[in-house]
Protein backbone atom coordinates (compact mmCIF):
# COMPACT_ATOMS: atom_id res chain seq x y z
CA UNK A 1 0.00 0.00 0.00
CA UNK A 2 2.84 2.31 0.92
CA UNK A 3 4.47 1.62 -2.43
CA UNK A 4 1.33 2.45 -4.37
CA UNK A 5 1.02 5.81 -2.61
CA UNK A 6 4.62 6.60 -3.45
CA UNK A 7 4.14 5.64 -7.08
CA UNK A 8 1.02 7.75 -7.34
CA UNK A 9 2.78 10.92 -6.21
CA UNK A 10 5.80 10.25 -8.35
CA UNK A 11 3.72 9.82 -11.51
CA UNK A 12 1.76 12.94 -10.69
CA UNK A 13 4.89 15.03 -10.27
CA UNK A 14 6.85 13.53 -13.15
CA UNK A 15 4.09 13.23 -15.72
CA UNK A 16 0.75 14.70 -14.64
CA UNK A 17 1.90 18.18 -13.71
CA UNK A 18 4.30 18.69 -16.67
CA UNK A 19 1.58 17.53 -19.07
CA UNK A 20 -0.95 19.93 -17.60
CA UNK A 21 1.61 22.72 -17.84
CA UNK A 22 2.07 22.05 -21.56
CA UNK A 23 -1.70 21.94 -22.05
CA UNK A 24 -2.22 25.38 -20.49
CA UNK A 25 1.03 26.88 -21.77
CA UNK A 26 -0.51 28.88 -24.68
CA UNK A 27 -3.02 30.42 -22.29
CA UNK A 28 -0.24 31.47 -19.92
CA UNK A 29 1.57 33.02 -22.88
CA UNK A 30 -1.61 34.83 -23.94
CA UNK A 31 -1.99 36.36 -20.49
CA UNK A 32 1.67 37.28 -20.21
CA UNK A 33 1.87 38.86 -23.69
CA UNK A 34 -1.35 40.80 -23.26
CA UNK A 35 0.16 42.76 -20.34
CA UNK A 36 3.32 43.73 -22.23
CA UNK A 37 4.15 46.96 -24.01
CA UNK A 38 5.19 46.93 -27.68
CA UNK A 39 8.75 47.55 -26.55
CA UNK A 40 8.79 44.56 -24.28
CA UNK A 41 7.15 42.29 -26.85
CA UNK A 42 9.85 43.07 -29.41
CA UNK A 43 12.74 42.70 -27.00
CA UNK A 44 15.39 40.00 -27.36
CA UNK A 45 15.61 37.92 -25.26
CA UNK A 46 11.92 37.96 -24.37
CA UNK A 47 10.61 38.11 -20.84
CA UNK A 48 8.17 35.75 -19.24
CA UNK A 49 6.64 37.88 -16.52
CA UNK A 50 6.02 41.40 -17.91
CA UNK A 51 8.49 43.85 -16.40
CA UNK A 52 6.17 46.86 -16.70
CA UNK A 53 2.73 45.28 -16.77
CA UNK A 54 0.22 47.50 -18.51
CA UNK A 55 -3.50 47.44 -19.17
CA UNK A 56 -3.04 49.69 -22.19
CA UNK A 57 -3.54 46.81 -24.69
CA UNK A 58 -6.99 46.11 -23.33
CA UNK A 59 -7.94 49.70 -24.10
CA UNK A 60 -6.17 50.03 -27.46
CA UNK A 61 -7.10 46.75 -29.09
CA UNK A 62 -10.70 47.84 -29.66
CA UNK A 63 -9.54 50.67 -31.89
CA UNK A 64 -6.85 48.74 -33.74
CA UNK A 65 -9.05 45.81 -34.71
CA UNK A 66 -12.84 46.13 -35.09
CA UNK A 67 -12.95 43.83 -32.08
CA UNK A 68 -16.43 44.85 -30.96
CA UNK A 69 -17.77 43.88 -34.41
CA UNK A 70 -15.89 40.59 -34.24
CA UNK A 71 -17.37 39.87 -30.82
CA UNK A 72 -20.88 40.63 -32.04
CA UNK A 73 -20.41 38.42 -35.10
CA UNK A 74 -19.05 35.49 -33.12
CA UNK A 75 -21.93 35.87 -30.72
CA UNK A 76 -24.45 35.88 -33.58
CA UNK A 77 -22.85 32.77 -35.08
CA UNK A 78 -23.10 31.04 -31.72
CA UNK A 79 -26.72 32.00 -31.14
CA UNK A 80 -27.68 31.19 -34.73
CA UNK A 81 -26.11 27.79 -34.57
CA UNK A 82 -27.68 26.99 -31.22
CA UNK A 83 -31.09 27.96 -32.54
CA UNK A 84 -30.73 25.87 -35.71
CA UNK A 85 -29.37 22.83 -33.90
CA UNK A 86 -32.29 22.93 -31.46
CA UNK A 87 -34.99 23.40 -34.08
CA UNK A 88 -33.59 20.77 -36.44
CA UNK A 89 -31.98 18.40 -33.98
CA UNK A 90 -34.41 18.05 -31.09
CA UNK A 91 -37.36 16.66 -33.12
CA UNK A 92 -35.08 14.31 -35.04
CA UNK A 93 -33.34 13.05 -31.92
CA UNK A 94 -36.66 12.56 -30.13
CA UNK A 95 -37.97 10.48 -33.04
CA UNK A 96 -34.83 8.37 -33.12
CA UNK A 97 -34.84 7.83 -29.36
CA UNK A 98 -38.54 7.02 -28.88
CA UNK A 99 -39.75 5.20 -31.96
CA UNK A 100 -38.76 2.04 -33.77
CA UNK A 101 -39.49 2.61 -37.45
CA UNK A 102 -38.15 1.28 -40.73
CA UNK A 103 -36.00 4.29 -41.56
CA UNK A 104 -34.40 4.52 -38.14
CA UNK A 105 -31.26 2.43 -38.59
CA UNK A 106 -30.46 3.79 -42.07
CA UNK A 107 -30.84 7.32 -40.76
CA UNK A 108 -28.48 6.67 -37.84
CA UNK A 109 -25.93 5.22 -40.25
CA UNK A 110 -26.40 8.19 -42.56
CA UNK A 111 -25.60 10.50 -39.63
CA UNK A 112 -22.38 8.59 -39.09
CA UNK A 113 -21.43 8.76 -42.77
CA UNK A 114 -21.84 12.55 -42.81
CA UNK A 115 -18.96 12.67 -40.34
CA UNK A 116 -16.64 11.17 -42.95
CA UNK A 117 -15.98 14.12 -45.15
CA UNK A 118 -14.13 17.30 -44.34
CA UNK A 119 -15.96 20.61 -44.07
CA UNK A 120 -14.00 21.81 -47.08
CA UNK A 121 -16.15 19.49 -49.24
CA UNK A 122 -19.24 21.38 -48.13
CA UNK A 123 -17.46 24.65 -48.81
CA UNK A 124 -16.52 23.55 -52.32
CA UNK A 125 -20.00 22.21 -52.99
CA UNK A 126 -21.94 25.29 -51.91
CA UNK A 127 -19.44 28.04 -52.69
CA UNK A 128 -20.65 28.58 -56.24
CA UNK A 129 -24.28 28.74 -55.12
CA UNK A 130 -23.46 31.18 -52.34
CA UNK A 131 -21.62 33.42 -54.79
CA UNK A 132 -24.36 33.16 -57.41
CA UNK A 133 -27.04 34.14 -54.88
CA UNK A 134 -24.97 37.07 -53.67
CA UNK A 135 -24.79 35.60 -50.16
CA UNK A 136 -21.14 36.26 -49.43
CA UNK A 137 -20.58 38.23 -46.23
CA UNK A 138 -23.78 36.87 -44.77
CA UNK A 139 -23.55 35.52 -41.23
CA UNK A 140 -26.76 33.54 -41.55
CA UNK A 141 -25.20 31.50 -44.35
CA UNK A 142 -22.15 30.76 -42.22
CA UNK A 143 -24.29 29.80 -39.23
CA UNK A 144 -26.48 27.51 -41.34
CA UNK A 145 -23.65 25.68 -43.08
CA UNK A 146 -21.75 25.31 -39.81
CA UNK A 147 -24.89 24.06 -38.06
CA UNK A 148 -25.66 21.49 -40.74
CA UNK A 149 -22.12 20.27 -40.39
CA UNK A 150 -22.29 19.61 -36.65
CA UNK A 151 -25.97 18.66 -36.66
CA UNK A 152 -25.27 14.94 -36.99
CA UNK A 153 -23.04 14.86 -33.92
CA UNK A 154 -25.55 16.88 -31.89
CA UNK A 155 -28.39 14.55 -32.87
CA UNK A 156 -26.31 11.60 -31.62
CA UNK A 157 -25.78 13.42 -28.32
CA UNK A 158 -29.46 14.30 -27.98
CA UNK A 159 -30.57 10.73 -28.75
CA UNK A 160 -28.48 9.65 -25.78
CA UNK A 161 -30.09 12.16 -23.43
CA UNK A 162 -33.64 11.36 -24.58
CA UNK A 163 -33.07 7.61 -24.35
CA UNK A 164 -32.13 8.01 -20.70
CA UNK A 165 -35.67 9.16 -19.87
CA UNK A 166 -38.08 6.29 -19.33
CA UNK A 167 -40.93 6.29 -21.90
CA UNK A 168 -43.35 5.19 -19.15
CA UNK A 169 -43.50 8.79 -17.95
CA UNK A 170 -44.91 9.88 -21.30
CA UNK A 171 -47.27 6.95 -21.44
CA UNK A 172 -48.68 8.00 -18.08
CA UNK A 173 -49.24 11.52 -19.38
CA UNK A 174 -50.94 10.15 -22.48
CA UNK A 175 -53.25 8.08 -20.29
CA UNK A 176 -54.27 11.35 -18.68
CA UNK A 177 -55.40 12.55 -22.08
CA UNK A 178 -52.32 14.28 -23.47
CA UNK A 179 -51.37 13.84 -27.09
CA UNK A 180 -48.01 12.38 -28.00
CA UNK A 181 -46.69 15.85 -28.76
CA UNK A 182 -48.16 17.22 -25.55
CA UNK A 183 -46.55 14.43 -23.53
CA UNK A 184 -43.23 15.11 -25.17
CA UNK A 185 -43.39 18.83 -24.42
CA UNK A 186 -44.79 18.43 -20.91
CA UNK A 187 -42.77 15.48 -19.63
CA UNK A 188 -39.68 14.61 -21.65
CA UNK A 189 -38.34 18.02 -22.61
CA UNK A 190 -38.27 19.39 -19.02
CA UNK A 191 -36.65 16.18 -17.76
CA UNK A 192 -33.94 16.26 -20.42
CA UNK A 193 -33.28 19.94 -19.79
CA UNK A 194 -29.65 19.51 -18.60
CA UNK A 195 -28.87 17.54 -21.76
CA UNK A 196 -30.53 20.16 -23.96
CA UNK A 197 -28.53 22.90 -22.26
CA UNK A 198 -25.32 20.93 -22.77
CA UNK A 199 -25.98 20.50 -26.49
CA UNK A 200 -27.05 24.12 -26.77
CA UNK A 201 -23.79 25.32 -25.25
CA UNK A 202 -21.87 22.89 -27.45
CA UNK A 203 -23.59 24.37 -30.51
CA UNK A 204 -22.88 27.91 -29.32
CA UNK A 205 -19.21 27.09 -28.88
CA UNK A 206 -19.11 25.46 -32.28
CA UNK A 207 -20.35 28.73 -33.77
CA UNK A 208 -18.05 30.81 -31.59
CA UNK A 209 -15.00 28.74 -32.57
CA UNK A 210 -15.97 28.43 -36.26
CA UNK A 211 -13.17 29.25 -38.70
CA UNK A 212 -13.28 27.62 -42.14
CA UNK A 213 -16.76 28.67 -43.31
CA UNK A 214 -16.22 32.25 -42.15
CA UNK A 215 -12.82 32.31 -43.80
CA UNK A 216 -14.28 31.40 -47.19
CA UNK A 217 -17.70 33.08 -47.06
CA UNK A 218 -16.77 36.39 -45.42
CA UNK A 219 -14.37 38.97 -46.79
CA UNK A 220 -15.76 42.10 -45.16
CA UNK A 221 -13.89 43.16 -41.99
CA UNK A 222 -17.04 44.23 -40.16
CA UNK A 223 -18.72 40.87 -40.75
CA UNK A 224 -15.85 38.66 -39.57
CA UNK A 225 -16.07 36.65 -36.35
CA UNK A 226 -13.18 36.71 -33.89
CA UNK A 227 -11.32 33.71 -35.27
CA UNK A 228 -11.08 35.07 -38.82
CA UNK A 229 -10.73 38.70 -37.75
CA UNK A 230 -7.68 37.89 -35.63
CA UNK A 231 -6.27 35.67 -38.35
CA UNK A 232 -6.62 38.43 -40.96
CA UNK A 233 -5.00 40.80 -38.51
CA UNK A 234 -1.82 38.73 -38.44
CA UNK A 235 -1.63 38.23 -42.17
CA UNK A 236 -2.30 41.85 -43.07
CA UNK A 237 0.04 43.90 -40.91
CA UNK A 238 3.36 43.56 -39.29
CA UNK A 239 2.19 41.26 -36.53
CA UNK A 240 1.46 43.12 -33.32
CA UNK A 241 1.58 40.21 -30.98
CA UNK A 242 0.60 42.09 -27.85
CA UNK A 243 -2.67 43.20 -29.46
CA UNK A 244 -3.27 39.83 -31.04
CA UNK A 245 -2.81 38.01 -27.75
CA UNK A 246 -5.11 40.45 -25.95
CA UNK A 247 -7.88 39.79 -28.46
CA UNK A 248 -7.17 36.05 -28.37
CA UNK A 249 -7.38 35.94 -24.61
CA UNK A 250 -10.75 37.72 -24.58
CA UNK A 251 -12.12 35.36 -27.25
CA UNK A 252 -10.82 32.31 -25.41
CA UNK A 253 -12.14 33.28 -21.99
CA UNK A 254 -15.73 33.30 -23.26
CA UNK A 255 -15.46 29.85 -24.82
CA UNK A 256 -13.67 28.27 -21.87
CA UNK A 257 -16.02 29.75 -19.28
CA UNK A 258 -19.07 28.49 -21.15
CA UNK A 259 -17.59 25.07 -21.67
CA UNK A 260 -16.79 24.60 -17.99
CA UNK A 261 -20.43 25.07 -17.06
CA UNK A 262 -21.56 22.03 -19.03
CA UNK A 263 -18.43 19.91 -19.42
CA UNK A 264 -19.60 17.17 -17.09
CA UNK A 265 -22.91 16.58 -18.83
CA UNK A 266 -21.26 16.86 -22.23
CA UNK A 267 -18.52 14.32 -21.58
CA UNK A 268 -21.07 11.88 -20.18
CA UNK A 269 -23.12 12.33 -23.34
CA UNK A 270 -20.10 11.61 -25.49
CA UNK A 271 -19.33 8.53 -23.46
CA UNK A 272 -22.87 7.35 -24.10
CA UNK A 273 -22.30 7.72 -27.86
CA UNK A 274 -19.15 5.67 -27.76
CA UNK A 275 -20.91 2.89 -25.86
CA UNK A 276 -23.34 2.33 -28.70
Amino acid sequence: MQRIQWFKWLSLVLYGIPMLLVLVFPFIVMVSTSFKTLEEVSQIPPTFIPRNPTLENYREVWNIIPLADHFRNSFLLGVGETFLIMVLGVPAAYALARFRFAGRQPYLIFLLVTQMFPAIVVVLGVFRVVVALGLLNNLAVVATTAASFSLAFCIWLLVGYFSAIPPEIEEAAMMDGDSRLGAMIKMTLPLSWPGLVAVGVFAFMDGWNEFLFSLTFISNDEMMPLTVGLFRFISRFQIQWHHLMTGSLLATIVAVALFMTVQDKLTRGMLAISEK
Binding site: L20, P26, F27, V29, N209, I234, V256, M260
Partner: peptide
Protein backbone atom coordinates in the same frame (compact mmCIF):
# COMPACT_ATOMS: atom_id res chain seq x y z
CA UNK B 1 -7.07 22.76 -16.85
CA UNK B 2 -7.06 19.57 -18.91
CA UNK B 3 -10.19 20.67 -20.77
CA UNK B 4 -8.97 24.14 -21.73
CA UNK B 5 -7.38 23.27 -25.10
CA UNK B 6 -10.61 21.54 -26.11
CA UNK B 7 -12.84 24.47 -25.16
CA UNK B 8 -10.72 27.26 -26.63
CA UNK B 9 -11.16 28.33 -30.27
CA UNK B 10 -8.61 26.10 -32.01
CA UNK B 11 -7.74 28.58 -34.75
CA UNK B 12 -6.84 31.14 -32.08
CA UNK B 13 -4.81 28.64 -30.04
CA UNK B 14 -2.93 27.68 -33.19
CA UNK B 15 -2.03 31.35 -33.77
CA UNK B 16 -0.79 31.51 -30.18
CA UNK B 17 1.42 28.49 -30.82
CA UNK B 18 2.75 30.27 -33.88
CA UNK B 19 3.79 33.09 -31.54
CA UNK B 20 5.34 30.60 -29.10
CA UNK B 21 7.38 29.07 -31.94
CA UNK B 22 8.65 32.51 -33.08
CA UNK B 23 12.44 32.31 -33.51
CA UNK B 24 13.56 35.57 -31.89
CA UNK B 25 10.69 36.51 -29.59
CA UNK B 26 8.93 33.21 -28.97
CA UNK B 27 8.39 31.60 -25.58
Amino acid sequence: LLLMPWAAPLAISAMTWRWIFHDQLGA
